[in-house]
């Protein structure tokens, strides 16, 4: 059955954009061994002839007319921002210095 190494878990944390301490990685590696064994049971009955269900309702696109309706003001939209400037979200640098 599946198991993950500490490096695998560290890679998942990187993909999920979460810094983790050594202790956290250690704990999660142990826990994932147990959890993955338990959830892998789905493979026992998931044969190729069974269709997948992603959602309880038959989903279809819902359209509305392209008309302006009341919405948040810029001040309201920015009211929870950690930082803002000139009616925009201010974010840390997203490109390297040399870029």
């Amino acid at each position: 059955m599946s198991s993950l190494s500490r490096d695998d878990v560290a890679n998942l944390a990187r993909l999920a954009r979460i810094d983790m301490t050594d202790q956290e990685l250690e704990n999660l590696t142990t826990e994932f061994g147990v959890i993955l064994n338990a959830v892998a049971r789905v493979q026992e009955v998931a044969t190729t002839d069974v269709p997948a269900t992603s959602h309880p309702l038959p989903l279809k696109n819902i359209f509305r007319s392209d008309v302006v309706i009341p919405s948040l003001t810029p001040e309201e939209a920015l009211s929870g921002a950690p930082a803002s400037e000139e009616q925009r979200f201010r974010v840390p640098q997203i490109l390297g210095e040399e870029a």
């Binding site: 944390a13 979460i18 998931a46 997948a52």
Partner: peptide
């Protein structure tokens, strides 16, 4: 979040998320 990231990752998607969706049908 990490468990979900794993279940959806390339190479494991069918074995985990895909199988779970089939169980949902059953």
């Amino acid at each position: 979040i990490l468990l979900g990231t794993y279940a959806l990752s390339s190479g494991y998607y069918d074995a985990y998320y895909g199988s779970a969706q089939k169980v949902r049908t059953l």
